[in-house]
Design a protein around this nucleic acid. Structure first.
Lengths: 210, 210
DNA sequence: TAGATTGTTAATCGATTAACAATC
DNA sequence: TAGATTGTTAATCGATTAACAATC
């Protein structure tokens, strides 16, 4: 049994991945924990500790090979796989997610979008036709769905998510302003924009200078 | 000098606020730390510690008055004030934010949206007309702008943000996939959707059961 | 080999939880 | 008054930082 990686570490991995991707784009093939620490504003010690949770990716006296390190972190994050994503709710946010091509580049493929508003059903969002929510169960039985993005009202999200779990869905990207309360073996990543705004206003009100 | 509140506490405040708002909607006017701890899946001890960072909102033997507590946390979060928000970038995400009425309800008023694509300028997004990015500086001089939401490409975001700081902007809601690197007295709340997705895929790949 | 930098252990710091006296 | 529950101190736990031996 491998030792459990703390969620503090996991939260930092995507940021490492982003910086390493940028370095690679800029043709930099080697970096030390200290150089990276300057760029990212974290301690070199933390960087080395973080990476060593997953084994030694560096080399003493040299540092880290950017391409290898990025690849390893990508694998840890599961970015070497493809994910089929469906979006529930064709409102503004659902449409924005469907249209964002950056996700596809990283292996997150939006394969369908659903809404229960008859006026929206049949319309196109990017290349994808909005389907009737009534066809959701059939779709899930017939297609592999790895992630369900929930961009529907908070009043409906927990119930719909519960149904989906019964249909075999195990992962949710939840944009509804509510907790979902699903079983242990279901993963939920919340994006609570209203809470994000509140943290911003807290920091505005409590700006150090005054 | 008041003691500095840890960011771990601040991150939890909006969730308390959400639960207290729901309780109030359901006509519940009183709650103990233990009851709230069951609902929210955190320890009662943490709840009491968190609230006591800001002074005693409860009453021994009784618990907390929901309405009062919600009001106090709202004040701490700065939700008793109004904020004028402008959005930079009228892409899908910018439009989604502009159209979301939930923010206005909490005092975050979207007063303008800008884009440098001439085809978009003059179009309506909800009630708001998209303005030319060239008119941004004038707009900021003539109007009070409390928050700038950045929904533009990562290649442009840091530079534009730097300019805005020179024009007097002190708060950013940053949706671009990059860090902004602004002075100490500027607050930035990042919403990095790509990173959120990566945390989700990490958790999918590392699902406990297997 | 000498210099550099990792991997890893130990020390510190901060956050969470437990316990209970204060008090409504 | 007795019961309940906070406010707060103390104990524990976990995460970050510092230090340095291992080694490329």
């Amino acid at each position: 049994m491998e030792k459990k990686i703390s969620s503090a570490v996991i939260k930092r991995l995507p940021r490492y991945y982003r910086y390493l991707s940028e370095l690679l784009e800029n043709g930099i093939d080697r970096i030390s924990s200290q150089e990276l620490s300057h760029k990212m504003n974290v301690t070199a010690s933390q960087i080395r500790q973080d990476f060593n949770n997953f084994g030694g990716f560096g080399q003493q006296g040299y540092g880290y090979n950017v391409e290898i390190l990025r690849g390893e972190i990508g694998k840890i994050l599961g970015l070497d796989k493809k994910y089929h994503v469906i979006i529930l709710g064709a409102g503004n946010l659902g449409q924005a997610l469907a249209n964002y091509t950056g996700f596809a580049r990283r292996g997150f493929l939006v394969s369908a979008i659903f809404d229960n508003d008859i006026k929206k059903v049949g319309q196109k969002v990017g290349d994808i036709i909005v389907r009737d929510m009534a066809a959701l169960e059939d779709y899930i039985q017939e297609n592999s769905v790895d992630i369900v993005a929930l961009t529907l009202p908070k009043s409906k999200a927990p119930e719909v998510a519960g149904e989906l779990v019964k249909m075999g869905v195990h992962a949710f990207w939840n944009f509804a302003a509510t907790d979902l309360n699903l079983p242990e073996d279901v993963v939920v990543e919340n994006v609570h924009l209203a809470e994000s705004l509140m943290r911003l206003s807290y920091n505005i009100v409590n700006l150090p200078h005054d």
